[in-house]
Structures are given as structure tokens and as C-alpha cells.
Amino acid sequence: METILSVNNLTKKFGYLTAVKDLSFTIEKGNVYGILGPNGSGKSTTLGIVLNVVNETNGTFSWFNGDTDTHNALKKVGAIIERPNFYPYMTAVQNLKLVCKIKEVSEDKIEEKLKLVGLLERKNSKFKTYSLGMKQRLAIASALLNDPEILILDEPTNGLDPQGIHQIREIIKKIARQGTTILLASHLLDEVEKVCSHVVILRKGEKLYSGRVDDMLASHGFFELKTENMAELETYLEKNDSFGKVTTENGLITAFLTEEMNPAVLNQELFKKGIILSHMVKRKESLEEQFLTLTKNQSN
């Protein structure tokens, strides 16, 4: 695996406040990463540091195995942090031409990228006349100008209306399908769940977890079951070693697995015992549930 970014023991203090505490993680090529955390957990600060706009207090980071210095590495990165910042008096095309000059890439791709984000008709309008959604899409176009190795997005749907959110997500998915590495910071869990394969979870500047979304909790998922004879089912489940915690809520039994189990096997077993299910679902905890469990475990 090719390492794109590695962060080692990064710490950032703003006066008394420690925004990022001893943070380490690596970003490998080809994955879609999410940085999750409540507001003020240090997501933007971390991105600010690796993007050369915030100075670290301690620790190091290196792009592309440290082969190039940060500002040259950033030419191979596309990033949007917080609000889109462009020159308000310049048109979309003029702004993008400037970005091309900074990134030292040719201007051929401007039209193509504007088309990708659906701004081609407004390309000669001044930036200040754009709506927030359009500004955000222009920022994405600008970040893609160099066909980056990695795309960094910080709260890309913040402040947008539902339609705008949808448009941005579609664009992100389209980019992810092309195999671009993406690092997405967000506090919106479903957003991360929909696109990310890996997550880094932060709380108060500390890393709670980093790794694959699937491996976040050592969990085999759980069954949601319903039958006529609830009491019998409950007794069966409690006696079975494959199940851990069993809860009943609103006439629905939730049984957590302690080991892998095929739903067909369980169904057959129960049928033999004369328990006939009227409802059976096997699923894994949603990212939200996992996230809450994780943050709760560590919240003292």
C-alpha cells in the first residue's frame, strides 16, 4: 500500500486549550477516509496543520512518504476547508486560472471540471454572485483541477439546503468511484457511512479509533426477531452460547451475537423447536450506534 499521508504524535495547543492531542494515523492510497467527531473535536485543526495553514505545537506529518516538502506536496492535493474562499470580484474561470498558476498545472481542465460540478453555464459570473451551494461546487472544481492524489473535504455540506447536500454527495461519490483517495471530515455520521471505508474518530482532540468502518467494534452484528411465543424464544436465546445480550423492546427481541452465525441456521433451528418467526433481520450496528457506543465508553 502506498502511503499518502502519515501523521505522527501531532499536538496543537491554542493557549490553554489542547485542540489536538498526540494524534497519529496514516492515509493509504485508494481508500475513502472519514474523520468523525463532534464539533470542536479537532477535525479542522488537524486538517489545517497538514494543509500548512496552522502551525503544529508538537509532532510531525509527512506527505507521500516525505519525498517532497509540504507546499509542493499540496500541489498534488485537492482540499476544501470550511467555507469556499475565492476572490469575490473575479469570475469562476479567472479564479480557477489563478489556482492553475499556483498549482502549476495547465488550464485545459477548467471547462471539464466546471462541467463536472455543473457550473459551466455560470463560468463567467463573478464569484460574489454565486449561491453558497454554487460556491461550494466551485471549490470542488478547483480542488479537482490538478486531478489530485487525494481530495480533502472539511464539512463539505455544511450550511447547504437538502438539494445542495444531495448534489455535493453525488459529486463525492462520483469522484470516489474513479478511485481517488478521499479524506472527509464531518460530524454527520450518515454522510461518512455512505461513502467511507475507513474512519478516524476524534473526541476533544484525542483519537478514539482509526481503522476500517467494519472493524470498529469487535462485533458480529445482531438479530432482530419477532414471533408469537416471545417468552419461549427469549429463553432459547439466553441459553444459547452464540448470543450475548438479549433485549426486548416494543415486542421486538434484539439478540447480539458473540460469534458469527448464518441467519438460515438460526431460522432452521428455531423452526425445529417449534418457534416460528414472523420477523427476522440480521444487521450490524450503524455507524451512529457504533460511534455513540465508542464515545460513551470513553466519556469519563
Binding site: N52, V53, H71, N72, L74, R83, N85, F86, I102
Partner: peptide, 17 residues
Amino acid sequence: SNKTIKQNLIDGLSKKE
């Protein structure tokens, strides 16, 4: 005031440049 300095740096302009 436009915060474009931030964008310039992110786009790969060094502070020295």
C-alpha cells in the same frame, strides 16, 4: 479579509512564495 491567503497556501503556494 477574503481568506484567500488560506486558499492560496492550501493550493500549494508556500508562505515564502
